[in-house]
Computed example of a mutant assay.
Amino acid sequence: MEFVLIRHSLTPGNLEKQYVGSTDQPLAPEGEALARERRERMPEVDGIWVSPLKRCRQTAELLFPGMEQRIVPDLQECDFGDYECKTWEELKDEEIYRAWIGGDMTITFPHGESMEHFIARCRRGIQTVAQEAKALGLERPAIVAHGGTWLVVMGTFGRPERKLYDWQVKNCGGFRVSVQENPFTLKLLEEL
Rank of each mutant, 00 (worst) to 15 (best):
A60Y: 02
E95P: 05
D93E: 15
Q58W: 02
I107F: 01
P43W: 06
A60H: 03
K54M: 12
E61G: 08
L53M: 13
E30Q: 15
I48N: 01
Q69M: 15
P26C: 09
A33V: 14
K92A: 12
P52S: 04
D79C: 11
L63T: 06
C78S: 10
I101M: 10
R41K: 13
T87R: 10
G81T: 10
V50S: 06
G102E: 01
A99W: 05
V45S: 03
L62E: 00
P29K: 09
L27P: 02
T59R: 05
E30D: 12
R98P: 05
W88I: 14
E90D: 13
E37R: 14
W88Q: 15
G66N: 11
R38V: 09
A33G: 08
P26S: 14
L27G: 02
E89T: 14
L91C: 06
M105R: 13
D79F: 04
E95Q: 12
P26R: 10
P43G: 07
S22I: 09
G47K: 01
P26H: 07
Q58N: 09
P52E: 02
R57N: 08
L34Y: 04
C78H: 03
C85L: 15
M105V: 12
I107D: 05
E68P: 10
V45I: 15
E90C: 06
E77C: 05
Q25R: 13
P73T: 01
Q25K: 09
A60P: 01
T106W: 00
M67W: 02
V45Q: 00
Y83C: 10
S22T: 08
Q58A: 08
Q58S: 10
V72S: 01
E77Y: 00
D46V: 10
E89N: 11
V72G: 03
A60G: 06
T59E: 04
I71K: 02
L63F: 08
P26D: 12
E40L: 11
Q25M: 12
P65M: 10
G31E: 00
A35S: 06
L53I: 08
G66S: 13
I96E: 06
E84G: 06
A99R: 15
L75E: 00
L62Y: 02
P65T: 12
E32Y: 06
A99T: 07
H111E: 14
R70C: 06
R98V: 09
